[in-house]
């Protein structure tokens, strides 16, 4: 079982890799829409890649209002 810190680290690594942002530029409390420069389609892409990586379903309504990586990790952890 992953810890929430491990989940957070994996999210940051995945986001950096897929959206081509240096990992060192991403922090847990960053607004990921701004840090990754996501439009609505890319937000869905991030959701799908997170689902594939963690092997869980992440209903998009649970992410309404979530903008920082740390809260995202909490939501994912609740599904693991």
């Amino acid at each position: 079982m992953r810890t929430v810190e491990q989940t957070l680290e994996e999210i940051l690594n995945l986001a950096a890799e897929h959206f081509r942002v240096p990992r060192g530029q991403l922090s847990p409390d960053d607004d990921f829409f701004k840090a990754l420069r996501l439009d609505s389609l890319q937000a869905l892409e991030l959701l799908t890649r997170l689902e594939q990586h963690f092997g869980v379903e992440l209903p998009d309504y649970e992410f309404q209002g979530v903008t920082d990586f740390r809260t995202l990790a909490d939501r994912i952890q609740a599904r693991l």
């Binding site: 869905l44 959701l47 799908t48 689902e51 594939q52 379903e57 209903p59 998009d60 309504y61």
Partner: peptide, 10 residues
């Protein structure tokens, strides 16, 4: 009833 989106695997 949820309006949620599902991925292709689901």
């Amino acid at each position: 009833l949820t309006g949620r989106s599902i991925n292709a695997q689901r």
